[in-house]
Design a protein around this nucleic acid. Structure first.
Lengths: 153, 153
DNA sequence: GTACTTGCAAAGATTTTGCAAGTAT
DNA sequence: ATACTTGCAAAATCTTTGCAAGTAC
């Protein structure tokens, strides 16, 4: 999943190296969903004097434009991913990898069930947490092979 | 759902007025899931000189003891509720009321689907967001009948 | 050339921590 | 009596904002 610069222009926003960098980091993260902090760190590994506020501002901007999607994060602030449509995730509790799944629990039956009480359904979230195949191999509690840290590009 | 003082003692922790207050607020909230800030505010309405740090500390402690459950909150910090077993919520985007639902998307099929990739399922979350029947009546965007504010006991 | 962006530094907001005083058991 | 808790104030985080300088178009 890559976002090219055209998509930025089409949205009526200027293509700056900082914005490209953010989008590239998230694109390369592929199966990752990164926190703002992680994006700042990875961006600094490439462009050391990029400002954190620039990144925070752009994460907001790009999310509003619909290029990024914000997920909540069990209390660790927001996590961001390239917006590639509606889907849910398997999230590894050790390495924080997030891989998309096709299954969506919001069937017509479930929606109707919710609506029985007069509730108007607007949105939903679903997330499965556990341990990915890589992290199951080692010790689940260990701090071993955290693949989020490091340069990642 | 009420937590009596015995449960605190059984967990090997002292029964202080502050802890009772926190549990009472959350018990009375019934269908509410409150943020730390809301709990602080409600607590202060009753015991004005209670310290916010006491509440933060106790929310942590009570969660570790399993008396409370922490939910994440689309970026607004944690929300807390009395731990009354596994269930999911319909959350109103206007008044933030959270009502429990019985339906759980984690069927055996879904679990197996997740496990096909070698993922070990540990946990999951599911939340339906929208507008509760009370809030549908009025203007959804208005700030009108926020029933979280106020003294609530 | 001009409006939008950036970096910096400072301000905000929220949560955590150290420590002496207070309290439940 | 004593170990656990509290309140206070200070620190630590994380995120936002104001503004002058810089940049994409």
């Amino acid at each position: 999943m890559t976002v090219n610069s055209n998509e930025l222009q089409v949205k009526g926003c200027k293509v700056t190296p900082q914005r490209r960098l953010i989008l590239d980091i998230l694109s390369n993260a592929e199966s990752h969903v990164l926190t703002a902090e992680e994006i700042v760190n990875q961006a600094r590994a490439i462009q050391p004097n990029i400002s954190a506020s620039t990144i925070y501002r752009n994460l907001g901007t790009l999310t509003e434009l619909g290029l990024l999607k914000r997920l909540d994060s069990m209390g660790e602030g927001w996590r961001y991913e390239i917006n590639s449509g509606h889907h849910h995730h398997l999230v590894c509790l050790k390495c924080h990898n997030a891989v998309s799944i096709d299954f969506c629990p919001m069937s017509r039956e479930v929606k109707e069930l919710a609506e029985q009480s007069g509730f108007e359904v607007a949105d939903h979230s679903f997330e499965i947490r556990g341990y990915c195949i890589n992290c199951r191999v080692g010790d689940k509690k260990g701090e071993g092979a955290q693949d989020l840290v490091g340069d990642e590009r």
